[in-house]
Simulated assay, not measured.
Amino acid sequence: GLFLTNVTQLPQLFQGIVGGALGWFDTAMPAIVTFAGVMVVGALLYRGLAQASVRQIVAMAIAASALVLVPMAYLQSQNLNVGELVQPRYILPLLTVLVATAGLSSNPARRLTLARAPAIAMGSLLTISAIVAYWTNIQRYIAGQQHPLIEGTLPIKWNPLLDLPMIPINIVTAVATGVWIIGLFLWARTAEDRPVSNAGR
């Protein structure tokens, strides 16, 4: 019935949070955006579970239950299928709570951190994902979605940037995105990878 159908299709709603269609499902994201988002969220949840205390596991279970039950309850009450009315962005705060809970350290004196290699890998994945998502979305408005994602002679029908040249704007956006995301993940590397300060010697 409707319940079992929605249960089996619910992961579609979850993956849409990190890489699904934007707006009212009118701007589909390339598969690499979804892939990167699912990989990074999965890695962060795994890292949290691997070092979680019992209380933290209980908190994560509650957050995960809310992530499942809230959309399911609404879909069932309105006799809707997954993909109808309820958009992935509506439950983004619930996923944020789950990932944030997984990122807490069971030891208040030590922050749960990332090793350098996974930090660089996840930062790079999200950088590529963010740049592709940005270009996909802006192309949808300036030229339409009927064109390939990368096209040298893209006909610009509308320039939302006050007629500023698109190439420099895109380059600046790509570089800024990469620096911010990779920098964020590198900041979260493990204490073992951090240089020892003179004060600690």
Rank of each mutant, 00 (worst) to 15 (best):
residue 17 I to A: 05
residue 51 Q to G: 08
residue 18 V to K: 00
residue 100 A to T: 11
residue 169 I to H: 07
residue 70 V to Q: 02
residue 137 N to A: 15
residue 32 I to H: 03
residue 1 G to A: 15
residue 48 G to H: 02
residue 71 P to M: 07
residue 150 I to N: 09
residue 125 L to W: 04
residue 144 G to V: 15
residue 9 Q to D: 14
residue 41 V to G: 01
residue 179 V to W: 05
residue 148 P to H: 10
residue 83 G to Y: 00
residue 47 R to S: 10
residue 89 R to I: 11
residue 11 P to N: 02
residue 13 L to Q: 03
residue 186 L to E: 01
residue 14 F to Y: 13
residue 26 D to Y: 09
residue 117 A to E: 11
residue 139 Q to D: 03
residue 165 P to L: 09
residue 13 L to E: 01
residue 103 G to E: 02
residue 27 T to A: 09
residue 93 P to C: 08
residue 179 V to D: 02
residue 157 K to A: 13
residue 14 F to M: 12
residue 47 R to E: 11
residue 72 M to V: 00
residue 15 Q to E: 10
residue 69 L to S: 14
residue 71 P to E: 00
residue 8 T to A: 05
residue 53 S to T: 13
residue 145 Q to W: 08
residue 88 P to N: 04
residue 114 L to W: 04
residue 71 P to D: 01
residue 134 Y to Q: 10
residue 38 V to M: 11
residue 97 V to Q: 05
residue 20 G to R: 03
residue 168 P to R: 02
residue 178 G to C: 02
residue 175 V to M: 06
residue 142 I to N: 06
residue 131 I to C: 05
residue 90 Y to E: 07
residue 89 R to L: 15
residue 114 L to V: 12
residue 10 L to F: 02
residue 154 L to I: 14
residue 24 W to G: 15
residue 83 G to A: 03
residue 86 V to H: 00
residue 180 W to Y: 14
residue 170 N to V: 15
residue 83 G to T: 04
residue 51 Q to L: 13
residue 175 V to K: 00
residue 130 A to K: 01
residue 30 P to A: 08
residue 66 A to S: 09
residue 80 L to Y: 02
residue 99 V to W: 04
residue 43 A to N: 06
residue 120 I to Q: 01
residue 90 Y to K: 04
residue 10 L to K: 00
residue 109 A to M: 12
residue 177 T to N: 06
residue 38 V to E: 01
residue 74 Y to K: 04
residue 18 V to P: 05
residue 10 L to H: 02
residue 98 L to D: 07
residue 125 L to R: 03
residue 185 F to T: 07
